[in-house]
Computed example of a mutant assay.
Amino acid sequence: MTTSPPADAHLREELTSRESLAKGNFLEVRRDTVKLPDGHSATREYVVHPGAVVVIPLLDDGRVVLERQFRYPVGQVMIEFPAGKLDAGEDPLVCGQRELLEETGYRAREWARAGAMHLAVGYSTEIIHIYFARGLSLGERQLDHGEFLDVFTATPDELLGWCRDGSVTDAKTLACALWLQNTGSGAWALDWQGDSARG
C-alpha cells in the first residue's frame, strides 16, 4: 500500500552532514549541511536548546505576577513572566511548578497548559511551553545561586500597555500577553487541572 507524500514535501530540507561548533553547559552550536528541495546544498547554523517553560501566574484579584531581571546578552533589565529551562527528561509542568516556586515563592492550586512557542525558528531549536497558574499561595523564594530578580504584580491592562509602548520586549512575555488577553476575554478556553496534573 502506498501513501501520498505530505503536502509540505516540496519545502523540506534533508540533513547530509553535521558539525558541532561549540558546546557549553546547556547550549550547543551546530552547523549542518542540508540538501535543498531543488537538489542544491546549503549550510544551517543553529543553537540546540533543551527547551523551557513560562508561567502566567494569576492572582485572585486579577493581577499577574511578573519579574524584572537583568539579561546579560541584551544588557538591560527585562520585564518577564517567570520562566526557566527544562532539565533533561523533565516534564514541562514539573518545570513550571519548580520555577514558579524558586523565582517567586508562589505555589499554585491549579494549572492549565496553554500551548507552546518556538522562540527563534531561524537559528534555535528552543521551544517554550506556556502554562497558566491560579489559586496562588505565597511562601519563600528559592533562588538559584547567582540569580537576582525582583518580583512584582500588575494588572493585565498595565502589562498590555507596557507591551504596546515598548517597555516589554521579551518575546515569550509578549506571546503570553496575547494568551492572557484572549483567555481573559473568553475567546480562548483553558483546561484547568489540580497541581498534581501532568502536562
Rank of each mutant, 00 (worst) to 15 (best):
T33W: 15
D165N: 10
L190V: 08
L15P: 15
R18N: 14
D91E: 10
S41A: 12
S4W: 13
E90Y: 07
D150G: 14
L119M: 12
E80W: 03
R63T: 08
V34M: 11
E14R: 15
A42E: 10
T16K: 15
E126W: 07
Q76C: 07
W162V: 00
L15M: 15
G186M: 02
P82T: 02
V53M: 02
G139R: 08
N25I: 08
E103G: 02
R141Y: 10
I79R: 01
S196L: 09
G84V: 00
D157K: 09
L21I: 07
D150M: 12
R109G: 06
G51N: 13
K172C: 06
P82S: 08
E45I: 12
M117K: 08
L136P: 05
F70E: 03
F81T: 01
S17T: 15
W188H: 14
D150F: 11
K172T: 06
Q142R: 13
S124L: 03
L36I: 04
L86M: 08
T183N: 12
C163G: 02
S196R: 15
D165A: 01
A133N: 05
G115T: 04
N182P: 11
P5F: 09
A116Y: 07
P92S: 04
T33Y: 12
K172Q: 08
S124I: 01
P50E: 07
S137L: 06
R107G: 09
Y72I: 04
A42L: 06
V65Q: 04
H49W: 06
A197V: 08
G135W: 02
Q69K: 13
M78G: 03
N182V: 03
T104Q: 03
G39S: 03
K172L: 00
G51T: 10
R44K: 15
D170W: 01
R134S: 03
A133K: 02
A112C: 10
L180R: 09
S137E: 11
D195I: 01
C163V: 05
R30P: 07
V168G: 01
W111P: 07
K23S: 14
Q69T: 10
V64H: 06
L86V: 05
L143Q: 07
A154E: 07
H40L: 09
R18K: 15
N182H: 15
C176F: 00
L59N: 05
K23Q: 12
G75Y: 02
W111T: 01
Q97L: 01
P82K: 06
